[in-house]
């Protein structure tokens, strides 16, 4: 249930992001989810892609600094309080979240990407509370 997320260092200059998406598109790599964390002069693109090994390889070849990190993807039903409930479980178990971002899928429910230093522990407590997590196999084919 651990998902491999790719993080790419990007300078804040025009067209750089387009170059990256172009490379992925040429190689038939789908981006399932992404977010950009930025500072004044650089950004970090974090994304979940269909073929992480291939994406890592082609981006490195093109000179990008790429880092692979483990994240978990939590499926949150589209009703009030559901995200609050999930985050409450993590916090009660002292599991700190480094960052998170969300994307919604067609069935009207949201998927939340969560980065924590202890992904296995997060998976354990969330599963104990019957919360749904995305399987690696599912997301890589989205």
């Amino acid at each position: 249930m651990i998902i491999r997320q790719l993080s790419v260092f990007l300078e804040n200059r025009t067209g750089r992001l387009t170059e990256l998406t172009g490379i992925l598109s040429e190689n038939g790599i789908n981006i399932s989810a992404f977010s950009i964390a930025d500072s004044t002069d650089f950004g970090i693109l974090r994304m979940i892609v269909g073929k992480p090994e291939l994406a890592e390889h082609v981006l490195r070849q093109k000179g990008f600094a790429v880092k692979v990190t483990d994240v978990i993807c939590l499926i949150v039903p589209d009703k009030p309080g559901s995200l609050h409930h999930a985050l409450g479980i993590l916090s009660e178990n002292d599991i700190a979240i480094d960052y998170m971002y969300a994307f919604s899928s067609a069935e009207g429910r949201a998927t939340v990407v969560i980065r924590t230093a202890v992904p296995q522990a997060a998976i354990r407590v969330l599963s104990q509370h019957r919360l749904e997590l995305v399987q690696a196999g599912d997301i890589y084919q989205i």
Partner: peptide
């Protein structure tokens, strides 16, 4: 230049 082996994916660490 950012070196890949030290590239952290957190903004605060890079800063």
């Amino acid at each position: 230049e950012v070196d890949e082996s030290f590239f952290s994916d957190e903004v605060k660490e890079l800063e």
